[in-house]
Design a protein around this nucleic acid. Structure first.
Length: 577
RNA sequence: GUGCCUGUAGCUCAACCGGAUAGAGCUUCUGACUUCGGAUCAGAAGGUUGGGGGUUCGAAUCCCUCCAGGCACGCCA
């Protein structure tokens, strides 16, 4: 049975102070205003609120005086020192040492490390990655895949119901070329060796021939029409292409530790497209223009001259049609109330149109198009190989792993071969992922092996190393660590580290505000810094009790937060490195 | 032409919904070790937040305008 006075331990200091502030404002008979955030500077304590400033502005009063009257009715004595008015009218809070110590002790017993379930659980479908069949995965898929996976992990961790959907590009016009090539140019041995490479070759060679030969062009188009009208032979070829590609993708996902709940490619929506167009026409949302079926947005200034075509003049459907059908499926069949689509920024107009159409149909689901920037090469242009092609994901990951392997071999030559191989994988993949996720998603970034694999700075290896150092302490301890009932923290470095640990629960939900995993990365980096400062300042194993057990507990928690935090970004941790 | 995104220290990037003296890392410089993994820590230097207006107690953040780069704009996805 939970005792009442312990209730506060279950929520973050931030949330608790916000509730107390809210109660104080109510007691004063004024409206809720401002926000309660962590302090911008340690001088100002641990948390601050600008409520008095905002209220004073609304009411034309003196902000500092208002702050004083808020403090007079504010009841935070159980967790904080008496609040102070500062600056123009900020109210600053400093958390009591006992409160930090008690909460830190309690975190050890909490699987969630203080993160409480969201008060607004959603049924989310996340659409991310979405590679194209018969093409290799390449750098262009990295950001969507890593970002989507991290958001899915975080959303799940805070208590949302998440379905991860791989919306494969499996029904494009490229299949006319691929099928023609399959029938005329297929090399079975090559297909067995490297199926994707062979499929790419078929596409490219057919494309070249079609460029110079009208009859090939015609024949490829005819193959596409046959596929779309359900010709069994072409369908079988197409199916093989999809299966071979999927096998290849799954190898990459296996290496990357990425899982999907469902795979619904564009082809899945095929038999729903006609009905979508009919429905929109009947509802008067769509109309016929220049022979095509279009949706116009005449009442939306930005979109007024940007119609969305949902059936081409030749009667064919395009990706707008299938994306509308996809929305239907997600809302109706999957019963989702929230749809997150993670793609590059160029598709913004497209999804604005799709969401606008859904709204016109009365759809009230929460649609979010989560966009991201590009990965650039050293020349600051889109990252390509020397020959100007997209860099295959497989090559990139292999290089990451081998580079990580070389570094590990140099730093720690005593490791067994297979152990080193495992560590190289965790570090190499982690480095690539972290380089991506630690950056604001909208800005382009320059891909740099040296930076992402550096042991210094805000990198995965640095964070992993902090974890490894802690694991090393526990190996040296020689027996299982049992957390003491009470802990004692006295040193500044201990308190600072404990505070940081308590903030994990404040940071994780924040990521979903604007879909910014880089906030979590930043937090983990600060945590690792705080840990290293503590480690430098405070001996652990050599300390006398009760400091020794207390410090071991800090180490244990730090390792768990680092491990969990990285896990939420889809990144693993080794025991040694 | 219209719309969207980006512009922050020499370089790579942070700054959650408008908060206090804009923060890190890399680089450079100065200190601290026969350390529990120094793969570290402490400190210094480095800025007209692309330019210019505006809104207000307060702006990197919001509004207007200009500059630079990227992207998208009816039958590709």
């Amino acid at each position: 049975m939970l005792r009442l006075r312990d209730l506060w331990k279950m929520e973050t200091f931030q949330s608790l102070l916000a509730r107390r502030l809210s109660a104080a404002l109510t007691a004063l008979g004024v409206s809720q205003a401002g926000e309660l955030t962590s302090a911008t500077d340690p001088r100002f304590g641990d948390y601050q609120t600008n409520a008095a400033l905002v209220l004073a502005k609304q009411r034309g009063e003196n902000p500092r005086a208002l702050a004083q009257s808020i403090i007079a009715v504010l009841d935070v004595g159980d967790v904080a020192e008496p609040p102070q008015v500062a600056g123009a009218g900020f109210i600053n809070f400093r958390i009591k040492r006992e409160a930090i110590v008690a909460k830190t002790r309690d975190l050890v017993g909490d699987e969630q490390l203080g993160v409480t379930p969201t008060t607004d659980p959603r049924k989310i479908v996340i659409d991310f990655g979405s590679p194209n069949v018969a093409k290799p995965m390449h750098v262009g898929h990295i950001r969507s895949t890593f970002l989507g996976d991290a958001l899915a992990r975080i959303a799940q961790f805070v208590g949302h119901d998440v379905i991860r959907d791989n919306h494969l590009g499996d029904w494009g016009t490229q299949f006319g070329m691929v099928i023609w090539g399959w029938k005329h140019l297929l090399d079975r041995d090559a297909l067995a060796r490297d199926s994707i490479a062979e499929l790419v070759r078929l596409y490219k060679e057919t494309n070249e021939r079609a460029a110079n030969d009208e009859s090939v062009r015609e024949a490829a188009r005819a193959e596409l029409v046959k596929l779309q009208s359900g010709d069994p032979e072409n369908f079988a070829i197409w199916k093989q292409c999809v299966d071979l590609s999927m096998r290849e993708f799954e190898r990459a996902y296996e290496l990357l530790g990425i899982k999907y709940d469902i795979v619904r490619g564009e082809s899945f929506y095929n038999d729903r497209l006609a009905a979508v167009v009919e429905r929109l026409l009947r509802a008067g949302i769509a109309e016929i223009s220049e022979g095509a079926v279009c949706v116009f947005f005449r009442d939306v200034p930005d979109l007024a001259d940007k119609p969305c075509i949902i059936r081409k003049r030749d009667g064919g459907y395009n990706y707008a049609t299938s994306d509308i059908a996809t929305v239907d499926y997600r809302v109706q069949d999957l019963q989702r109330d929230t749809i997150w689509i993670v793609t590059g920024a160029p598709q913004q107009l497209h999804f604005r149109q799709i969401f606008e159409i859904a709204r016109r149909e009365g759809d009230t689901a929460d649609f979010r198009h989560i966009t991201h920037g590009s990965i650039l090469g050293e020349d600051r242009k889109l990252m390509k190989t020397r020959s100007g092609e997209n860099v295959p994901l497989r090559d990139l990951l292999e290089e990451a792993i081998s580079r990580a392997g070389r570094i590990v071999a140099e730093k720690n030559p005593d490791l067994r071969e297979e152990e080193r191989a495992h560590i190289a994988k965790v570090i190499g993949i982690g480095a690539v992922k972290y380089a991506d996720l630690s950056q604001y998603r909208m800005t382009d970034y320059v891909f740099s092996w040296d930076k992402m694999l550096s042991l210094h700075g805000n990198t995965a290896p640095y964070l992993q190393n902090a974890y490894v150092r802690i694991r090393s302490i526990f190996r040296k301890l020689g027996h299982a660590f049992v957390a003491p009932e009470k802990i004692a923290l006295a040193e500044a470095a201990e308190i600072q580290l404990a505070k940081k640990l308590c903030q994990f629960a404040e940071v994780v939900p924040q990521v979903l505000n604007d879909f910014r995993p880089n906030i979590l990365g930043n937090y983990l980096f600060e945590l690792a810094n705080n840990f290293h400062a503590f480690y430098e300042e405070c001996p652990v194993l050599k300390a006398a009790e009760p400091a020794r057990s207390s410090r071991l507990l800090l180490c244990e928690l730090t390792a768990r937060v680092l491990g969990r935090g990285l896990d939420l970004l889809g990144i693993g941790v080794p025991e040694k490195m």
